[in-house]
Amino acid sequence: MIDLSNALKRGFKKAFITYLDLIKVIVPVYVLVTFFRHFGIIDYLAGIFSPMMQLFGLSGEAVVVLLTGYFLNLYAAIGAISGLQLGIREITILGTMLGLAHSLIIEGAVMKKMRVNVLTLIILRIVASLAVGIILNLIL
């Protein structure tokens, strides 16, 4: 027997519990990352990794986009791209690299709930992202 109103209540309850679960993960991580940003730690890292960007055929300033995408999210990375003057080739390389690996801290925290080895997955994503960046720089 199909009982839609009961399903509606069940769905709402599950959504509420899940929402609280996600808030507990997302809020502390978001606050921490915002602290990093305001203390200039993300800017400092951008300076260190600049020479590496040549491997991906990207200008040094594009490291800000990569790090923003890896540590924050794709929206922030897109904002950074818009602020810089990058060509189609650079945006395609960045888009592919960031598609493979982004929001690593927040998504890592969320994936931890799946009872998988999150560290392995984060390393896999970063390696895939960097390798694809080098390959695209060679073939594009």
Binding site: L74, L94, T96, G99
Partner: peptide
């Protein structure tokens, strides 16, 4: 969603989506 966002700012969708 991800692919559409990067197409919107000028990326090539086939490469970005296909690779992933």
């Amino acid at each position: 969603e991800d692919t559409l966002l990067f197409i919107a700012i000028g990326g090539r969708g086939v490469i970005m989506l296909g690779t992933r």
